[in-house]
Design a protein around this nucleic acid. Structure first.
Lengths: 178, 178
DNA sequence: ACCTGAACACCGTTCAAGT
DNA sequence: ACCTGAACACCGTTCAAGT
């Protein structure tokens, strides 16, 4: 049966979970799909386009956030939902950063928009979206880079990025939702 | 005369300004230094170690922030100083993110520490440092990725990251310094 | 101590040609 | 429409050998 974009993205995600971005070359991907590397270029114009499609799949997994009593609670919810989706796939932060730069729709933007509509302050939605998105990706890029380095050099000090993430998030939310 | 680390880092920065990270291969670097690629491995164990040294040089250029009347003013100052240093070199955000993950000292941490000492709230220094650092790198990684994509595909929409950065920063600072 | 020369094991991408 | 085969132009890294 013929290949299609969605099957390629599926296999790419599988490869990412097994070996991260360095293990996901066009060649390993083609091998896994029982196809020549050049076949992939009929479905995607470049590896970067393929990665953007992967990013969109990851972003589609960001859980929607239910309405809550305070704006801060909702903003904390979106941020954590995005972090969970992005941190769940190896090198996911780098891939999603690429996808957003390429123009993928940011689910945080819509969620923040709804929160501002519910709790007022709609004129701050853009700034809040930028702040939360960049924060989540910034922390998670560093975490996954650190993870990759530690895999090669076991002497590296470990860092608890989950609590670091929460600590930084609370510092941000302290006044944001006012 | 013999090569040394600092000359290699100088040349690497020059190459970055000319062609970004994709243009800075160990081979182009060696050619520019009139040396064989393998010669670089006497001075640095890997390209990643070299990039960490580049990151440290970039971070050393973060301008120190003078004392100001409010904590918010000082935090805005450090954030902007870091952004200027990092955005000043092509792909600088990605390189600095790698450097920090590898354990480079973060100048934001010291500056935030001094701000907290002056204006009180020392127990929040860690969260503030995480938030501001991840934010600056998150926005700037996206900006530089976007810039690289737009260079290849001129049809891409342009984004004003300077004002986006300021907008997000104000959203963060709104309550942080309270 | 510092570097060369040559190789190893890879990459992304293109493109004529096949079916 | 969808894919193969073969090539092009690169990578980072290693290591014996030179000086």
């Amino acid at each position: 049966m013929a290949l299609n974009k969605s099957a390629v993205v599926d296999t790419a995600l599988g490869l990412l979970h097994e070996a991260g971005l360095p293990g996901m070359s066009m060649r390993t991907l083609a091998t896994r799909l029982n196809v020549q590397p050049s076949a992939l270029y009929w479905h995607f114009p470049s590896k970067q386009a393929l990665l953007t499609a992967v990013a969109e799949r990851v972003l589609a997994d960001v859980a929607p956030v239910e309405a809550r009593a305070s704006a801060a609670d909702e903003l904390r919810g979106v941020s954590r939902a995005m972090r969970i989706a992005v941190a769940g796939v190896p090198d996911g932060a780098e891939i999603v950063a690429l996808g957003l730069a390429a123009g993928a729709v940011n689910p945080v933007a819509e969620a923040v928009g709804r929160t501002c509509a519910r709790h007022g302050g709609g004129e701050r939605a853009a700034g809040l979206t930028t702040a939360l998105t960049a924060y989540v990706l910034g922390v998670t890029v560093e975490e996954q880079t650190h993870h990759n380095l530690a895999a090669v050099d076991p002497a590296m000090s470990r860092v608890d990025y989950d609590s670091r993430f929460d600590e930084g998030l609370e510092a941000m939310l302290a006044g944001m939702a006012g």
